[in-house]
Amino acid sequence: MIEARSLTKTFRDKKRGEIRAVDGVSFRVEPGQIYGLLGANGAGKTTTLRLLATLLQPTAGTATVAGFDIVAAPEKVRARVGFLATSTALYGRLTAREMIAYFGRLNGLAEAEIKVRLQRLADELDLHEFLDRRCEKLSTGMKQKTSIARTLIHDPAVMIFDEPTLGLDVMAARAIVRFVRDCKGRGKTVIYSTHMMSEVEKLCDTIGIIHGGRLLAEGTLGELRARTGEHDMEEVFVKVACPEEPA
């Protein structure tokens, strides 16, 4: 489960002064649920997810992830989280097998356990063909699959996806979407950030619209449509994020 409580993150910029990248964001995601964080570029999605993954520390507020506080026990949180983003790359000089096993070791798994889990992931994600190929030689789709296996090797209870389909072709993006659904099916708590309306419509149980660091609206797709009186997700988003914008 994820529970964010007034999560706030400010940065200092020499030119622009204090920037509130995330401003008092609160939400709750239950196991077996996909929470979609929808926002334009620079809305605060990545910062929110980095806070939940304990890559950044909140300036104010906090969150509980899989039963642990992100400020008090960041290492325990990370041990229960799988974080996948376009910015989380693979080590080019390691093979896919070495990459996945490395993260197994970092997560404190024993060698025998890593072997078993790697075999299972290779079967599930169809990695066998390129498991012993260096990551730098893999295609984008193969890299994505390896990244997914990397996030799953320690079987985390919570999955955080930060725009995972960005820059991918249709087939690779579909594979990701399928995988996210699969995570939900396995009872994992999933948070998924994107600026693509179609993905939100397809995947998410609850949608949070974030803009200027603030969570402006939250609800199911039906609730948001009802509140804005719009059917098209893009129109829903525009009405919430920029109400002054002409339709």
Binding site: A53, L55, E75, K76, R78, A79, V81, F83, A85, S87, T88, A89, L90, Y91, G92, F103, L106, N107, G108, R150, T151
Partner: peptide
């Protein structure tokens, strides 16, 4: 630069 540092920081290692 290669984006692997963020991947590494996701692990529970201190």
């Amino acid at each position: 630069e290669r984006g692997t540092l963020e991947t590494l920081l996701c692990s529970p290692v201190a």
